[in-house]
Design a protein around this nucleic acid. Structure first.
Lengths: 221, 221, 221, 221
DNA sequence: TATGAATGAGACTTCATTCAT
DNA sequence: TATGAATGAAGTCTCATTCAT
């Protein structure tokens, strides 16, 4: 931001990188602004300002505000699920532990990342951008559910978990994770600790509840 | 409409009733529109149209779009929690059943009602209307958590539930209910059944998971 | 205003008179409001309120805001000049005294009356209502100038005044009177005494200046 | 407009100059429109049109209609009084001549200038913008009166003028000048010559009346 | 006659988008 | 490529006027 805090080499380097990374910097800034204000209340000028360019420049890279918005969504819909699936296939320990891993990993790779703003954004703009919701479901929600489904199936097959509905249960396992994600963007101001508690403790408590909820009736703790 | 079908008293009453009912009709229409589009994208003219009045009429009852929005939130923040608290105090059966009752009741009295749109609205507009978020938390979220906390305490006191954290657990119990609420307004368009499944089945499954999650280690099903 | 402050007879009487005087009360209220705010910024509802009737009632008596405005102007263009002309014809004393009388009388009968607001109104709205300006000039300004012209002619004929231009001098004599009138509506707020001084002293000083300005070169004081 | 007629530097300058001149052009147009119509009846779109720009451009330079109005007033409250004061101090001739000079100068530097519209504007909007009236009085009216007061004091000290009230007399001397100013904007339409006479002749006649009004009783013409 | 709820044209203002530089 | 001044469509809000009661 400030030339006095970086060496000439850095600045020059930064400027070089700048030109190349413009779209990326704009997308980062746009994600921030869209998440904060929502689509309609977001100002393209503020996106440009946060990216350090002028309003006109933004339109060199994105044809319209809507195009920018869609690019933000598509860009941030990661592929963090893919390696999740691999993990399940390779995992050899007890299903309890796999479930705990999944929950921790979900939060690390998505829930606590900047991309998590997408969840808020898509809740807020669902009615205005139905195609994005469909896209998001296909690319994110469904694979995620499939991943949980596989964990459940593995646990049931191994006799670690009782028999549960494979359509409903993934929703219930993921719901608190998504809620924690939404809270990150809902409680910027207020924040009694009881409402925005320590994420780690909450994740562990969630995992504990889930595992106990899935335990077979006669099994030991 | 026709003088021959109504006495002067009736017609006078009709006039009166209209004036009396207008704000309510406008608030209902406004809730719909705000939930659908979000605050910024909502058009006051559409609110007026859905309420069957002209643009100008809306401003006879609400000083501004923002005042309308705030009135919508305040109006729909119900008192459905109050009788919940009474229910707990009076309940005499096993805590399992009380928890099931709470979950069913939450959905009936709020989650499936039109007022449930508030949840989406407050997620979407949290950053733009922090005071409303604080108000909502105080009036709705905190009392709700307190209610669940009392159910948990009762269960632990009676030996029905194992010892759990009284700050974290309510969040985990309510989170899936809120998620179900949000889905109602997120999946207007698409809707594969696996994503928007039968609420009743989901509620029962949620209750089952929660109860098992709270069960004492040695206890029978 | 308040029934408790007047006997029943008074009130009844007042109400009787009311109906009859509605237009007059509306015109009085309208003069006030138009003078205070100007035509465009004046609200018909405020006129109605000050007249103690509803907005709808105003339109029973005046077809439109513009019609009300024109009626206000026409109504307040008095005939105070007419008797002024008679006075001149009948006056037998020295012209000094006649001039002093004219100045005092102008202020008493117009400058200090509520109708004086017209002067401000016509300055403000001249460009928007040229026909009213023409009407005002014909009915008020020209007769007034003619009156001063007659006083000057009389004074010159009697040898009391030096020879002066009969077109220019009336303007110069009346100008300070009109300015005093405008100040009444311009200095509602501030009012250092040097700017809004005692009207009587100012009138006397004006008369003194005018009379000396008209005195023949060799004449004694 | 045409690249062949201007060097790059020129065109860059032209751009710069436009941005630099815009506020001034808008203020000029705004003064016109506000004086013609009054504040409330003035349309910002008309101001923009007269300045040759679009509605939106106006708001790049002035935050609101009210801000534009206030800028118009502040901008046109000149410093034409300052050099008047110097003139008095340096003047060596008879006070008659100084007074004549003041009257002529007042008209030249203010009364006949576009800024003279301020007088009409402030009469019209006094009640709606009291702070501007106070500002105007402080910056214009009071210095002007002080200037006349100094001329009078000088005349009395030199024995040129009789003793007069130093608070009242400046008002009487300036009043006809202000009236002449107001007439410029009041008589756009009608205009019988007797009502809007030759300003020069009127100024001379005014000066003559004032000087005679100030003359010591025994003094020769 | 009197009311005041309802209307809708029109004003101010914002902001995504364009384009000359 | 980058800028930012300029645009004008569209939104919120006001208020003169109407009309059912």
């Amino acid at each position: 931001m400030n030339a006095s805090t970086s060496s000439p080499t850095d600045t020059a380097h930064k400027r070089e990188r700048r030109k190349h990374d413009r779209p990326g910097e704009l997308l980062d800034a746009a994600l921030q602004v869209f998440v904060e204000k929502g689509y309609a209340a977001a100002r393209v000028e503020e996106v440009a300002r946060r990216a350090g360019v002028s309003k006109g420049t933004l339109f060199l890279y994105f044809a319209s505000k809507e195009a920018l918005f869609k690019a933000v969504v598509r860009e941030n819909i990661g592929r963090h699920v893919a390696d999740g699936l691999r993990q399940v296939a390779e995992f050899t320990g007890p299903s309890d532990e796999l479930m705990r891993e999944f929950i921790r990993h979900w939060w690390q790779s998505y829930g606590s990342s900047p991309a998590a703003g997408l969840s808020k954004l898509l809740v807020a703009e669902a009615a205005n951008f139905p195609s994005l919701v469909a896209y998001y479901r296909q690319e994110v929600v469904e694979p995620e559910h499939e991943l949980v489904r596989q964990i459940l199936q593995r646990g049931m097959a191994r006799g670690d978990f009782r028999a549960v509905d494979l359509n409903l249960t993934p929703l219930l396992i993921i719901a608190p994770l998504v809620q924690m994600t939404l809270w990150r963007f809902t409680q910027t101001v207020c924040c009694t600790p009881s409402v925005a508690p320590d994420p780690t403790a909450l994740l562990e408590q969630h995992a504990e509840m889930v595992i106990r909820g899935l335990r077979k009736d006669g099994s030991a703790p």
